[in-house]
């Protein structure tokens, strides 16, 4: 916070230097967002032409639709379960590597890889692995016939996309948790061991409170990511089904807008999602800001 601020003497040079970045941000964020804002208050013919101003009608339609609330509910369920899973596993792996269990150098290196895999690729891999008839997991159906079928069972489908999303987020969480754990002086954890605390107790009483800022940061990132970046996985694995069991908000926006060609309805939903993510981030950062930092 008290670091020296680098200032440019030449104001116009500074403007010139940030212009390319501003141009990108404008082209790919502000412009589409502005367009969506306009569409949300109009009825937009799918193949162009005169739009009509309809005020709040699109929002009223969205909020009056029980299927929209279904997708909100599914999104929340998805976000919270995949966040909990991804953070739990990330923390577990990070604590293994932090304790330098055998082979930790290799794990430290390879655990990060899943994060580099694009969501549709993750979806495709999970679709094959978890295919009920031919996938790796189909063995379950040999032992317990009909137990696993994400094409028919909404719960299985939700489990599938939660697993896929958590898998791709574990790597990110792992790296941050590991950095957090390694910033805690080793002797502090050792003092805990001398005081009689086992590994789990030390994690709960000493390490977790000390990496609380990292922890809350990751909650924000994970939940936001689950809301926004889940499209690729849903599209490839379940397509929102069966019977809308995995119809997440972001997927519904896509199917209403680009498949159903109802841009206005999709734009209204995008705005709601955007405000939701903003609010979530705001609340969580306020919470994080208030956390005591120890040095």
């Amino acid at each position: 916070m008290s670091g020296k601020r680098v200032t440019f003497k030449n104001f116009w040079l500074a403007i010139l230097l940030i212009l390319p970045q501003l141009f990108l941000v404008f082209t790919f964020f502000y412009w589409p967002a502005g367009e969506a804002l306009y569409w949300a208050f109009t009825l937009e013919p799918p193949f162009g032409g005169e739009q009509q101003w309809v005020g709040w009608q699109n929002f009223e339609t969205v909020f009056a639709d029980p299927l929209y609330w279904n997708s909100v509910k599914r999104s929340l369920l998805f976000a919270f379960s995949s966040t909990a899973l991804a953070m739990g596993i990330g923390l577990l792996l990070a604590s293994f590597v932090d304790r330098q269990l055998a082979g930790y150098k290799v794990y430290r290196f390879i655990y990060f890889w899943p994060y580099a895999v694009a969501a549709p690729a993750v979806g495709l891999a999970f679709r094959f692995i978890f295919a009920p008839d031919a996938g790796f997991v189909s063995a379950i159906n040999v032992w317990f016939p009909g137990l696993w079928n994400p094409a028919l069972d909404g719960f299985d489908a939700m489990v599938l996309i939660v697993l896929a999303n958590a898998w791709s987020m574990v790597a990110y969480n792992f790296i941050f948790f590991l950095a957090g754990l390694q910033s805690i002086p080793r002797s502090l954890v050792e003092a805990g061991a001398m005081d009689g605390a086992g590994a789990v107790r030390r994690m709960r009483d000493l390490q977790l409170p000390l990496i609380a800022p990292t922890f809350f940061f990751l909650i924000v990132i994970n939940i936001t990511d689950s809301f926004v970046n889940s499209f690729g996985i849903v599209d490839i694995t379940t397509g929102g089904g069966p019977a809308r069991a995995t119809d997440l908000m972001v997927f519904k926006i896509y199917s209403d807008g680009f498949k159903g060609k109802d841009y206005s309805l999709a734009a209204a939903q995008s705005l709601v999602l955007m405000l939701m993510v903003c609010a979530l981030t705001f609340i969580q950062f306020r919470f994080v800001e208030r956390r005591v930092h120890y040095s």
Binding site: G240, A243, D247, K261
Partner: peptide, 10 residues
Amino acid sequence: TSIRSELTSE
């Protein structure tokens, strides 16, 4: 296409 997808889901 919207109607068809509603029909599919139902």
